[in-house]
Design a protein around this nucleic acid. Sequence first.
DNA 1: TTGAAAGCGTTACCAA
DNA 2: TTGGTAACGCTTTCAA
Lengths: 362, 362
Amino acid sequence: MAVTLADVAARARVSPATVSRVLSGKYPVAEPTRARVLRAVDELEYVANGPASALAAATSDLVGIVVADIADPFFGILAGAVQSEISAAGRAGGAGEKLPVVCSTGGRTERELTCLTLLQRQRAAAVVVAGGGAERPEDAAAVAAKLARLAASGTRVVLCGRPPVADAVTLAFDHRGGARRLTEHLLSLGHRRFGYVAGPPGRTTTGDRLAGHRAALAAAGVGHSARLVLHGPYDRASGYAATVELLRRDPGLTAVVAANDTVALGVCAALRDQGRRVPGDVSVAGFDDLPFSRDAAPALTTVRLPLREAGARAGRLALGREERPPGGVATVRGELVARASTAPPRPQGGDADRANRLTPIT
Amino acid sequence: MAVTLADVAARARVSPATVSRVLSGKYPVAEPTRARVLRAVDELEYVANGPASALAAATSDLVGIVVADIADPFFGILAGAVQSEISAAGRAGGAGEKLPVVCSTGGRTERELTCLTLLQRQRAAAVVVAGGGAERPEDAAAVAAKLARLAASGTRVVLCGRPPVADAVTLAFDHRGGARRLTEHLLSLGHRRFGYVAGPPGRTTTGDRLAGHRAALAAAGVGHSARLVLHGPYDRASGYAATVELLRRDPGLTAVVAANDTVALGVCAALRDQGRRVPGDVSVAGFDDLPFSRDAAPALTTVRLPLREAGARAGRLALGREERPPGGVATVRGELVARASTAPPRPQGGDADRANRLTPIT
DNA sequence: TTGAAAGCGTTACCAA
DNA sequence: TTGGTAACGCTTTCAA
């Protein structure tokens, strides 16, 4: 079978314990001995048995990164940042190097629990849970309980982009504030009739962004019908279909806010197919400002979350290389990116009046 | 500490061996006993110790997916497809459920070897290596040797999108054929002066696509200068910068072929910024046809690789749920997607002549 | 600074 | 159908 520690020990004429000490690197070993061991390791092409180490040490060097969907660039960027932060630490391939592993859940609580169980089974050293969570109390509680058990069993838990839970370190995203500023911006341009294409129902990200949007409207005294809020997955097709329906429900809307940039692309496409100029007749806003959106929809107004920075920080927190923020929670804010200031085409009397009472924000 | 098999056994008043059998599910156990064990598992919230199982069974339930960059939607889609195929098998969270783990290498051989070592250390059940490999013989040999060792140690190895190695099961992508058809298409429209923005140097994907392009040009008797081939990473900035330089070197080019769609977006942006209409003055072609490209560059001509299907198939091969293709190698071909048939603006005499001798393809 | 040996929690073989 | 019990390969006291 495979080469074992004992084989290396025999070859280097030392005890297995010594080899272990050399490899772990955190025990004093005489230099000549050390060299002999390392040479034996090389000659034998020894690769440690991870499971055996994990069993003996009661912790593995796996770091889990749980996301909704790796095919979604939002999570791809986030997960990539976490990974590279983790891989950057520790000598390449050396013992103690962490193996970042990405799991995707499809945004389903059930699958989320499964992933966490799988990581718990692996005795992962840390777990970064990225993206929004379930809003339903039972679901949220189930995940919280699972995370608590994970933490209790020695796994470091870091939340990134979801509400804090118990005492897990959390990097919360300010979706609410971002959506609010986004909507305030559109209001300041004079828009009064909004459509909103929301993300999947029952998820905190969806709810938070929507809440921010509604808060801005309420603060401006602009009414908003629930009929003009449509939910769907974070994809282009959802934006397209929702927009067709929104226009049917209110042909006079002048702005559409989308759950994210991908959805916004579908919105733009549908608007054009329905004969509206974008921007011009209708302004479209999105979220996240992913790299391609500037090409796909140059006039999009979005909120840019510093995904790379957040991911890197989450990675450091997972490794325990960065101090816990006060209270265990740090909030990451997005930046408003307004590429075109398109006022609505034909402002109506009453609305224009109200607009004058608004203080432009941003 | 954590609940162990022995705890469950005690509670269910059976031996540890029996609990193990119930959990593994592949041994006959009397129904009442089985029920008692499962109840104990539930009551105790027992979660098996993966490392211990892996040690005893000499194989873990990890399945590695090695990609160049998860932040790149190309790999995100591919990895996502592999993952969902793997997660679909096996009852959620049950014993024996595989844990698909994605690692990214940045397309660097060194990091690739590290990832493979890490997976070898974990005694992964299978490894799917996706995306092109190194062209340099030493590098290719090093990776091949590593893969051979992995395979020898019982890990199932599946290659996806890179040249076959020894006897690893391979899903090869026909980059060469795709690039060839793409170029033939542009030639059939009358284009004769091409710029080419290639991927990172020294990688098989880059080399294969370029080879296909050159083969098409050669077959058509169209000369091509190495000065009009520029290399860079698979990102937008690379396409932008390369295009500025290409136009400097040949202001009269009528078509630019890009390493992939993301690069093509940069090409389009640069062309516009340089005062060219796209399409119109210059036609742009890309690769991969990712979801956003139709919005970002509606007139792009691309080659669409069936990424989801390929990923799913790779997943099944990794699980041993799909038969090895004859010879161990199956080739995945891309589909030419031509959204606009833009002929060059001002065909030159001699070239137009030659164009007539071409048989239009596709 | 090094060695000996007792676990770590499963699996799998051999009996019963 | 079940139980007893060696491995599995490493880490980590405890001694020397």
